[in-house]
């Protein structure tokens, strides 16, 4: 059996000093096949971004390992391109400059002309042609995330990590960019791990959806394969029974685990003192 492209093996992450330690992630296991599009879905505060930082190598695991093609990940690198939620663009550089910085660093052997062509190709790919010399400050939110995508893709990463890339955008821009990401992925397949809090988005885009249980001590729960045919058309998908069923299944599961977590939490609630309101009305 081939090695999984990306593997999380019994990873724990926590913070705080010993004794009063809070575990954010506990015993997380995940295997992502090559060229698979996996969506990890979870509630806010459940440690989604921690998981992403772990995959990117920005944060070390306290226990367990993250492996890429069998090799342990210890530090970040351009082979795992990460798309940050808040774009992380360099505001003093132009659109072209932002992409060029990455290209120059990852492909230092490129000639100047090749590099220009390479940068331009990725700017065109995310439909930002014509805005090459604008600064990020002059771009809309959607355009900024496109630029961030162009920068990440221009490094030609083996694995693409999307950390809630669309959650800061309005609904229309979001749909637009979802299509764009899928189009680019279909043109040039690679392994993708996307974190999201939107079930529709996950069903529309991913090959497989994995649920992250609410934290603390979050871990990966059930996994739902998405067998819908590609290309998926968002306009007709709403009437597709398979889509509806899957969406309902995932949603129900998420709601259930959330209630379960709430119930678990209630068990440790401190009991309130018994107080009776005193009647102050005139006797």
């Amino acid at each position: 059996m081939a090695l999984p492209a990306l593997e999380i093996d019994k990873v724990d992450v926590g913070f705080g000093p010993e004794g009063s330690r809070t575990e954010v992630l506990k015993d997380v296991r995940l295997k992502v096949e090559a060229n698979e599009f996996v969506a990890i879905i979870g509630f806010s505060g459940s440690g989604k971004s921690t998981l992403m930082n772990l995959l990117a190598g920005l944060q070390p695991a306290d226990c367990g390992e993250v492996r890429m093609n069998g090799q342990v990940v210890t530090e970040p690198g351009p082979e795992r391109g990460i798309l940050f939620q808040n774009y992380s663009l360099l505001p003093w550089l132009s659109v072209f400059g932002n992409v060029e910085l990455a290209v120059r660093q990852v492909f230092p052997e490129m000639t100047k002309a090749d590099r220009r062509a390479h940068v331009q190709r990725y700017i065109d790919m995310v439909s930002l042609s014509g805005s090459e010399w604008k600064r990020p400050g002059e771009l809309s939110g959607g355009m900024r995330q496109r630029l961030s995508l162009a920068r990440t893709l221009s490094m030609r990463p083996e694995v693409l990590l999307l950390d809630e890339p669309l959650s800061a955008l309005d609904a229309l821009t979001r749909a637009n960019l979802q299509d764009e990401i899928i189009r680019i992925w279909e043109e040039d397949k690679r392994t993708v791990v996307m974190i999201t809090n939107d079930v529709d988005e996950a069903v529309l885009m991913a090959d497989r959806i994995v649920a992250l249980t609410p934290g603390p001590e979050a871990t990966l729960g059930e996994s739902f394969p998405v067998t819908l045919d590609r290309p998926r058309d968002r306009t007709t998908l709403n009437f597709n029974p398979q889509f509806k069923e899957l969406r309902n299944k995932v949603t129900r599961y998420m709601v259930d685990i959330n209630q379960e977590a709430k119930m678990l939490r209630k068990a440790v609630d401190v009991s309130l003192p018994e107080l009776t309101p005193y009647d102050f009305t005139a006797v």
């Binding site: 990117a56 920005l58 970040p76 690198g77 351009p78 360099l90 660093q105 990852v106």
Partner: peptide, 26 residues
């Protein structure tokens, strides 16, 4: 900005490029 430093880490920028391309401009 921590995000800018994360970009530098993902790109594996060396000390000098980190200084002149990220830290000083920012």
């Amino acid at each position: 900005d921590k995000d800018h430093m994360n970009v530098a880490r993902v790109l594996k920028l060396g000390l000098w490029s980190r200084l002149f391309k990220i830290i000083i401009p920012s």
